[in-house]
Simulated assay, not measured.
Amino acid sequence: MIVVTRLNDSQFAINPDLIERIHASPDTTLVMVDGAKFIVIETLDEIIEKIARFRAHVISLASLTDDRDYRSGARSLEIPMGPHAIEDELEPGSGQRPRRL
């Protein structure tokens, strides 16, 4: 999930896999696969960056997970949760590189 902000400054999380397209004219509008539309204050580039970071985070977690633990239901690592989990994984001040878990 990525966190986005409505024009009234309320935040909500949205599944980026359900975004069909993004318009920026002039406000950024997320058009979902079911036809729902959300106008947000983030720019088109910011939304694309959030989606890329979210997907990179999912891939990095998958590479750290042992398949045997997944099948047995045991947790082998703490998975960061919450609306800002991806941002919390970054090195302080860098905004670029995730910390190692």
Score class of each variant (00 low, 15 high):
R99E: 09
A52K: 14
M32Y: 13
S60N: 13
T28W: 06
D17A: 08
Q96K: 10
R6L: 14
R53I: 01
G73T: 03
T43F: 00
P26E: 03
A36V: 10
A13F: 00
G73F: 00
A24Y: 07
R99V: 04
Q11C: 10
I39V: 15
K50W: 02
H23P: 03
A24K: 12
P16M: 09
F38V: 09
D69I: 03
I86R: 07
S72Y: 02
S10W: 06
R6D: 14
R21E: 13
D67E: 10
A52H: 13
V58M: 12
G35H: 15
F38Y: 15
A24N: 14
R21Y: 15
E87K: 12
I47H: 11
V40M: 07
F12C: 02
A24E: 15
D9Y: 05
V31P: 07
I14G: 01
V4L: 08
S10M: 11
S63Q: 14
L30Y: 03
G93E: 03
L30H: 03
P83V: 06
D17H: 12
E42T: 03
E89L: 10
A52I: 09
T43N: 00
F54R: 14
V4Q: 00
T65K: 08
S25V: 10
I47A: 09
G82L: 04
G95T: 02
R68T: 15
I2V: 04
L101T: 08
P92D: 12
L18C: 06
E87H: 08
E89F: 02
R21S: 11
V58S: 06
S60P: 01
I51W: 00
F12A: 04
R21M: 08
A62E: 13
D27F: 00
I22H: 03
T65Y: 07
I22G: 01
L101M: 09
E91F: 13
G35M: 14
L101K: 10
A52M: 07
I39L: 09
F54L: 11
L77P: 06
D69H: 12
E46K: 04
R68M: 13
H23Y: 13
L44P: 01
P26W: 02
L18S: 09
I41Y: 06
S10D: 09
M1E: 11
D9V: 02
P83I: 05
I39D: 11
R97P: 00
A62T: 04
P98Q: 03
I47N: 12
L64V: 02
R53Y: 04
E87Q: 11
A13P: 07
E89G: 09
E87R: 10
V40K: 06
A24T: 11
T29A: 07
T28M: 06
M32H: 13
V3H: 08
S10I: 07
